[in-house]
């Protein structure tokens, strides 16, 4: 085996280990957005950028998907807690507009945490 062969094999093995670690331990990227409003749930891909208008109990919340992330752009509430939550990027990240009854959460291959405290 030449030096390049050995380097190639080493890199391959490392890449393979990383792959196992990434895909089999549940620390993966999010790939879907679940939007719940008025008891109805819709699922969107994080793959293509778009803006989604969701009708809640008070009016329309606008949710934006961009570069594999999602966020509330506007929502008919006064606290704007949902908008302040900012971008959701990892599986398990969740934002909700409680007054309007809209929940946005990222689902994916795996979650790093079982629950989030704040």
């Amino acid at each position: 085996m030449t030096r390049a062969d050995k380097a190639g094999l080493t890199v391959s093995l490392l890449a393979l280990l990383t792959l196992y670690g990434y895909l089999w331990t549940g620390i993966g990227p999010a790939n879907q957005v679940t939007v719940t409003a008025a008891g109805e749930t819709r699922v969107f891909s994080l793959g293509h950028d778009q803006r989604i208008a969701v009708s809640g109990s008070r009016g329309e919340s606008i949710i934006e998907i961009e570069q594999g992330r999602a966020r509330f752009v506007t929502s008919p509430c006064s606290g704007k807690v949902c908008v302040h939550t900012g971008w959701l990027a990892r599986a398990g990240d969740t934002a909700a507009c409680v007054p309007n009854g809209v929940i946005v959460s990222l689902t994916g291959h795996g979650k790093q945490y079982d629950s989030i405290n704040f």
């Binding site: 085996m1 030449t2 030096r3 390049a4 062969d5 190639g8 094999l9």
Partner: peptide
């Protein structure tokens, strides 16, 4: 560059 890869690489 160099000797590069062999068949196995």
């Amino acid at each position: 560059p160099g000797r590069g890869f062999s068949a196995i690489g």
